[in-house]
Amino acid sequence: MSIMEHLTQEERLAYQQAVKKAILVIMGVSGCGKTTVAQGLQEALGWPYQEGDSLHPKANVDKMASGVPLTDEDRYPWLEKCHEWIQSIHAQHGAGILTCSALKRKYRDLLRGDMGNSVRFVYLNVPQAVLEDRMKKRVGHYMPPSLLPSQLATLEPPGQDENPIVVDVVQTPEETVRIVLDSLEKQL
């Protein structure tokens, strides 16, 4: 079942026409809902979507699965693959959606490159207790709940000068997607 099934065709078309094309990077720590929100946005906007976790080298996945946090050196090849996807999709379509934790400003700078406001970060801010609960219940993901503290310690929330869309996630996924869509409609 789709999280955005309640959107009418007219609502989808309205969002697609009102929202200026951009590359959206749905960011935040593990368990914040990046994939769910990105899929809802992809469904509403019809833009290409890439799950950033699938771009990780196998060594990174193995390291995280064994409970070892990634270092900056581990992350850079992955971030470069994400940046390459951003560039390619921007050149082909002008718009797309990528999930990526983008925990530090320097990671976001690498992802954005010289593309400026063509790349927009959507930061999903979720209370730690909710994140812990979600990660304990999650099935089939390589990231163990034991790595959440290291992600929270690494996280540098985006500053106002980065022009992020910040969503304090306390509502349903559908409502979160609508908040992002409404913000995009107003801001872009």
Rank of each mutant, 00 (worst) to 15 (best):
L152D: 12
Q92L: 04
E162Y: 01
T71R: 05
A38W: 02
Q42M: 10
A18W: 00
W78L: 06
E43S: 15
Y49V: 08
K34S: 13
R134P: 05
P149Y: 06
N163R: 07
E185T: 15
V19Y: 03
H90Q: 10
V177S: 08
E5R: 13
L188V: 09
G52W: 01
T71D: 07
V29G: 12
K136A: 14
L110M: 10
G52D: 05
E51A: 12
V122L: 05
N117W: 00
A102E: 05
H6R: 14
Q151F: 03
D114I: 00
P145G: 13
K34C: 11
K137M: 06
M143D: 10
C82A: 13
A91K: 13
N60A: 07
V119P: 03
S88W: 03
E51P: 02
L110Y: 01
A59S: 12
I26Q: 12
D62M: 09
S88G: 07
A18E: 07
W78P: 04
A38R: 06
E51N: 14
N117S: 15
P69A: 10
M64I: 03
N125F: 01
Q42Y: 01
V139Y: 03
Y123V: 05
I23Q: 09
K106R: 15
I26F: 09
L181F: 08
K81H: 08
S2Q: 09
P48S: 10
L147G: 08
T99P: 03
E132Q: 15
E11K: 12
P144E: 14
K104T: 04
Y15W: 14
A102K: 09
L7S: 13
P164V: 04
V166Y: 00
Y49N: 10
Q151P: 08
L184R: 11
G113M: 00
M27N: 12
D114R: 08
A153Y: 01
H6K: 13
R108W: 00
G31M: 05
I3T: 13
A95H: 09
P144I: 12
E84D: 07
